[in-house]
């Protein structure tokens, strides 16, 4: 990526005064944030600070939690995602998600990857074959599973499962990938593989990643947002946040004084 590209990058998701409550507990307080396209944005902060909630709001996964209540706006490519004309399944097709624990479905590797395209109406066998291969290659796992496409995905190792889940998310050709601590359940070698993968994916996708691991955020992200008790304390380029944070609390957190 060259400097010109970086300048060209536009805002893809922007939130304004976003508040989320679970019953009486306010998990996000007036979060206003612009996320640039084709970049990696890391969300950091101690447990319960609202970073996961923020992530899950962006593709409306919070709809699944009954007690969750949201105010404010989230614009995805200038469209309000909470507007009645916004179809949730369309939104989630554009904004994919990878979870903390690998969660392949109890079906074959092939069916896992084909699940999304099938959901959105792709039936042709040849097309599906093509998508499956492309997605698995995209997730850097094709070589490991090309002979196991018909085997149950639960037989793969944890790291493989997570890359399969990334392939599954890629198969619907999303625009944005939300990743909720995708490596926290994995061993260091698998983690390195996934991090390399994420860096590759940046070429074509916008990635927003929640992480507990400061080194990880530093290694892969372009921008970093620090959350604390539902507040977006500080948001800016990763280099700046980790070298000269403007807020004392950010400094305390990244230097490990709490959290």
């Amino acid at each position: 990526m060259n400097a010109e590209d970086k300048q060209k990058s536009d805002t893809i998701i922007s939130t304004k005064d976003l508040n989320v409550w679970y019953d009486d507990f306010q998990a996000l307080i007036d979060v206003t944030m612009d996320i640039p396209e084709k970049s990696i944005t890391a969300l950091i902060g101690p447990s319960g600070c609202g970073k996961s909630t923020f992530l899950r709001t962006l593709n409306r996964m919070n709809d699944l939690i009954e007690s969750a209540k949201t105010t404010g706006s989230v614009l995805y490519r200038d469209q309000d995602i909470f507007h009645s004309s916004m179809e949730v399944s369309e939104l989630r097709r554009h904004i994919g998600m990878v979870f903390q624990k690998p969660n392949p479905f109890p079906m074959s590797v092939y069916d896992n990857v084909a699940y999304g395209p099938r959901t959105h109406g792709t039936k042709s066998r040849a097309k599906l074959d093509d998508i499956v291969e492309r997605s698995l290659r995209g997730a850097a796992i094709w070589d490991e599973v090309r002979d196991k496409l018909r085997q149950n995905a639960l037989g793969l190792s944890g790291g493989q499962q997570q890359r399969l889940c990334i392939a599954r998310a890629l198969a619907v050709q999303p625009d944005v990938l939300l990743m909720d601590e995708p490596t926290s359940a994995l061993d260091p070698i698998s983690t390195t593989k996934i991090e390399e993968l994420i860096l590759q994916l940046k070429e074509n996708y916008t990635i927003i990643i929640v992480t507990h691991n400061m080194q990880q955020a530093l290694r892969i992200s372009d921008g970093t947002a620090f959350f604390l008790l539902g507040d977006l304390v500080e948001y800016g380029s990763t280099d700046i946040i980790f070298s000269t944070p403007s807020d004392k609390r950010t400094e305390d957190y990244i230097t490990g004084r709490f959290g």
Partner: peptide
């Protein structure tokens, strides 16, 4: 969650 996140109804 995995299925919902892929846009399944």
């Amino acid at each position: 969650e995995g299925a919902f996140a892929l846009g399944a109804g």
